[in-house]
Design a binder for these strands. Structure first.
Lengths: 217, 217
DNA sequence: ACGTCGACCCTACAGTGTAGGGTCGGGGCA
DNA sequence: TGCCCCGACCCTACACTGTAGGGTCGACGT
């Protein structure tokens, strides 16, 4: 009323849109993100968004890439591959827990983001350097990717469930069960690492087993 | 015009509704399942459905339970736990591939179905009988559950992606890449089994490692 | 034969994604 | 300086969604 100085706060970039959408999803869940709602949060009309984002599907994809962009890649020349795996898993899990409402949809999304492919190749290189054969490294990478997928999904939905069933109350219980999830996570990672180590030591055997099972169905 | 004999084909049970919905989702994807669309497929008005199903959320949940109901439980007294694990994984994967359009949503759904819990307990019992301690069995079960989650999701989305990028053409290529996925699956299962076997042989070491890692973050 | 009841249909409403056209303010050129 | 153009924004409109509320009608117990 005194002075409505800037008729244009910011030129409404795609990144600003993604951030605002992410904030809404974080607060109210992905199903209550609508173009009008998002536009209102940006102080803008719904249709204006379409000048920077072609459709809601594309908006979602952009949100996913924004989130995944926060995942730091593992350095390829790290010392022990085991530690690299643990670190990557930890980061991935942390990201899933930072955006629990988006992550399931991100993961279930049918299109792969560029970041995903990058991470995949990085992992594969690490395992190859560790001594796995090309096929084994590729398979192990896919196995890790698969496991990470499940890991993120379970962590995120568990967090959502817990948040739903109790309010924002009982931080000690939350801390305890979070610690439990943390231990579960570490246990699972060790399970995978142990499997890969065994595969490293006896590649013939693993290959033979692989061929022996899973022909029917 | 000659004779519109049955004014009521069937009393429109919930199961019939779930089946019809499942058929639509299989054909056209989950986002194009609407109450009106479903009603049309059933030869009925949209609102009639609400006399058997309280809401669309409940409809979805019912669909998920219907799908999961097709998963045969592993017999608890099977011989080798390894084979039980392989069989369960195979069935789970097969189910994910039979309903690729629903499965991601089923898995990402925040509420657990009764069947899920049943399977969980069954698995835990198998691993305990195999010789794992109670905590280790429970953790391994959660790890397997996590992995199965990722497995199903990856298998389903891969199938969807492949179907989208090519039409219904090129069955040989499809068969080849399906075989590849099959081998990936077997490899991953063996990875997990190897990890559990190691955990069986040296429970101290695994526990120590678990405690050693993953404190930060 | 009548009352009751439950399964079904219809209308209506608020909310969704988005196509198409209108409006206005600032930059390139005479 | 004046003019034009163009791109960023807004508004209206449409076909669709889930679903609340009430109306209709056929079958059944007495």
């Amino acid at each position: 009323m005194k002075a409505q100085a800037p008729p244009r706060r910011q030129p409404l970039s795609p990144d600003r849109i993604y951030r605002a959408a992410l904030a809404i999803i974080d607060r109210e869940g992905v199903e209550s993100l609508s173009m009008r709602r998002l536009a209102a949060a940006l102080g803008v009309d719904a249709m204006s968004i379409y000048h920077h984002v072609p459709s809601k599907r594309a908006l979602m994809q952009g949100i996913y890439e924004t989130v995944l962009g926060e995942l730091p890649l593992p350095a390829p020349d790290d010392g022990a591959w085991q530690e690299a795996l643990r670190a990557l898993g930890r980061r991935f899990r942390a990201l899933a827990r930072r955006y629990p409402k988006v992550f399931p949809h991100l993961i279930a999304s049918a299109e792969a983001t560029a970041r995903e492919i990058e991470i995949y190749q990085r992992l594969c290189a690490i395992l190859t350097r560790a001594g796995l054969s090309a096929v084994d490294a590729s398979r192990a990478t896919r196995a890790i990717y698969t496991y990470a997928t499940g890991l993120a999904l379970v962590a995120a939905t568990a967090l959502c469930r817990r948040r739903r069933h109790q309010g924002a109350s009982a931080p000690p219980d939350d801390a305890r069960s979070r610690g439990e999830g943390e231990q579960d996570f570490a246990f699972s990672i060790e399970l995978l690492i142990a499997g890969i180590e065994r595969c490293l030591r006896a590649p013939r055997k693993a290959a033979a087993r692989t061929r022996a099972s899973g022909v029917s169905s």
